[in-house]
Design a protein around this nucleic acid. Sequence first.
DNA 1: ACGATAATCGAAAACGTTTTCGAACGAAGG
DNA 2: CCTTCGTTCGAAAACGTTTTCGATTATCGT
Lengths: 336, 336
Amino acid sequence: MVTIKDVAKAANVSVTVVSKTLNGYSDVNEDTRRKVLKVAEELKYTPNMLAKNLKQKVTKSIALIFSNFERANGKDGVLFQIMSGIYAAAVDFKYEVVIYTRSLSEQQNISYWKFCKDHKIAGAVVTGLKTTDPYFQEIVNSDFPCVVLDTDLASEHTGSVSTDNVGAAKVAVEFLISKNHRKIGMINGHEFAVVSRQRLEGYKAALSEQDIDFDPTIVVNSDYSEESAYELADSYLQEHRDVTAIFFASDLMAIGFMNRCREIGVRIPEDISILGFDDIVLSSYTTPKLSTVRQNFHKLAYQACEQVIHILEKEEKGRHIMMPFKIVDRETIKEL
Amino acid sequence: MVTIKDVAKAANVSVTVVSKTLNGYSDVNEDTRRKVLKVAEELKYTPNMLAKNLKQKVTKSIALIFSNFERANGKDGVLFQIMSGIYAAAVDFKYEVVIYTRSLSEQQNISYWKFCKDHKIAGAVVTGLKTTDPYFQEIVNSDFPCVVLDTDLASEHTGSVSTDNVGAAKVAVEFLISKNHRKIGMINGHEFAVVSRQRLEGYKAALSEQDIDFDPTIVVNSDYSEESAYELADSYLQEHRDVTAIFFASDLMAIGFMNRCREIGVRIPEDISILGFDDIVLSSYTTPKLSTVRQNFHKLAYQACEQVIHILEKEEKGRHIMMPFKIVDRETIKEL
DNA sequence: ACGATAATCGAAAACGTTTTCGAACGAAGG
DNA sequence: CCTTCGTTCGAAAACGTTTTCGATTATCGT
């Protein structure tokens, strides 16, 4: 291991000037600067980050924090896209990314703040955080640079980025309406998830704008999972024979529902139209191919990571970033 | 920030004994040990990993290295499963995992060894490495703890873990044969990928064991991607009307092929039987559902991570670990 | 009571940096 | 020639640990 001391010796200067030239200080003569640079190059010197960080009490690593790998079972691949987006931003800004999962019990054991300090991370992007999670409150009034996905927090040091959920939901059901659907059901996610509320809001907005009565009996809460929607399909179909289209808060639920439909012989889209949300990769491979509204998770995560870096480097204030969406109509919507 | 010095002062001892009690040295009195522990608890002391690592010249972080996020586009979700497996092992052994992608140009710029040293990583698990990649040779004779996925390297400090590819391929086509197929084609991956070679070897073994002639014209090399198989479907089907079943070296290729089949009206499995490899999540969602041989990527990655840790902690020698497979027959194989 | 042995502790060096602050030197101004 | 100032450099402290090794005390056998 070649240290700063070695290059100092080889260049016939003190470690101080080596450190200074390497860090762009001005009080070093042009000639010696060149000499040092040359020697450092020859010796293939690279700074010891541990020592550097120890001294300056700061690292160049941002953390990706989410609840756990199991819950994010990867079927939908969104966590992967998020990772890829964060990583892309990290390399662009010369950061490293280290991943952490914090289960409920872990969250209770040690505080968010302490966790970040302990691990000497510069900033964090958090996803999959429920408003009921212990870390939620901690994060909103923390002085630790952080942006959380799929919420609309914004404070001094914490920002957020999410798709324009209410807008997306609104144009989604407007699209359904444009296909002459009037009785449009909705299968939503967890009641207390902020995206669920936003999606519901958009749903209602579209209806009211078109003078369609909001019928609370045909919107039901589920849990975003494929299985839940699969199981709820029978009774829903039974009880609401008049709905001609259903808007799902996630593709996974739409797919679970469709699976049950196939089993019991209700045809899609002939008997009922389906509109999902997310555009996960699965959605292009079902038969029929799922119509849905696309979120760009990669870009969303990139923005998130970029924002943490900005708030920790340029001391920007946290803010909420809204990402565009796009409705992609495939084969599960029938025009009436 | 509460340092070791603070707890030393509060406990009326030297920093030395604090460090010693915290690190389980034996030469500290039971009473003082208790006192120190109590104080440390009260002060919520947590060691500064940077300082600790700087001193001991070693970190507790293992790196996940692969070529890049784009190439591993995540459609198949296997990289995600690998991540999850590695992460699981890492937390079990109290390591952190930091992810790196090293593009070809990056590999040429700075050596694998230097890279590892610079980033102060304890060990690495590498995936998606082609034998032609610059890092390949470097890794096989490096003294850096490392295990690489999907190869069968084994040396002092580097191990490997992979599914039993030749075994899997063998029983796969044996299964096809048991369904009375005799003219079995194969769509393989890159010719120079070690898994491709192994899968081909298994394919041949099964044939020869059943006294079926190996017909090189019906096995073709592709590149593991969906698109490539999609494009090759037309001509393959045209030229080899007598093959009744095809064994694919990846589910993705099988799916691409099936898509083309649907478009041109060849029915699966009535007209041709399809057997994939991997069991990615997509495979359960196609119609018909893809029959395939399952690799447990999560467990495979877990083993890999566990092995690096063993070789770096217990100084075990690197070795090759072979993981079991399982053929799962769904709806794309017809018995003749 | 004496030396030997064991148990417990702490001073200090070290890890590889950054950064403060003063020293040395030459040039310029009077 | 003396002062002042700017430029360039280096000694040393600091970051928070670990670890060596010597010092101190207690115990014990004789």
